[in-house]
Design a protein around this nucleic acid. Sequence first.
DNA 1: GCAATAATACAACTATTGTTGAAATATTAA
DNA 2: TTAATATTTCAACAATAGTTGTATTATTGC
Lengths: 123, 123
Amino acid sequence: MEKQSATQIFESLSSGVRLDVFRLLVKQGLDGMVAGEIASTLEVPPTNLSFHLKALTQAHLVTVEQEGRFQRYRANIPLMLDLIAYLTDECCAGHPEQCADLRGASSCCESVLPPISIVHDQA
Amino acid sequence: MEKQSATQIFESLSSGVRLDVFRLLVKQGLDGMVAGEIASTLEVPPTNLSFHLKALTQAHLVTVEQEGRFQRYRANIPLMLDLIAYLTDECCAGHPEQCADLRGASSCCESVLPPISIVHDQA
DNA sequence: GCAATAATACAACTATTGTTGAAATATTAA
DNA sequence: TTAATATTTCAACAATAGTTGTATTATTGC
């Protein structure tokens, strides 16, 4: 990932409204939500939501698909994971014992599948 | 993690200078770096670096320790991991098959240890 | 103590971002 | 086709963030 992409994504997550929107869409998964649903769920004026959705879309952190007169937004989960990889890239280089802290730091689908953890593959 | 903490951390990573600083410190691990080293490595004026280090410190994403007349900065790796957990919390709820995308998205210490991957624990 | 060094605080200015209401665009339903 | 609905664009303003030079604080070495 390029630095400029990363800063744009972090910028797009640095507002409370946009973070709420993104996390809401992460929860919705492939279903996504249309703009009006997001606005009413989060109680944000449509004009303001549109502004924030544009920022998220330009950062490619959400995708948008036209659906009749609705716009359906979805979280771009793979990009989120690329960002995480970028952030943790080369962490603790030369001091692998520090990586012990990494165990169990992430969670996904914990309500459906057994909890995940980050582990070092056995060579 | 509280929303305000998360937005402050994302904000602190949304500038190119601060992202460079944080990633540099992540690579240094427990050794950290003193402010002057960071400034000369990244070729940022000391005054400007100080401004950005303050933002990172206030977000608790870096820690600072006085060392004689130097200030030693270190990345707060556990907080970074808390942030990742916050971001991925409840992802794809109800649609676990989407989590396949999560595999291998993060990396840590790949130059020292075998590569890591994110896996679902076996119940 | 005194000069040199490391780093931060302050002040001024510039630039960017956030919010809102009103207007515009595009789609659906009748 | 016409009215209603969903969403975005635009313009104006308010608020916040970024950069730089200068001054200040604190520590070290002589």
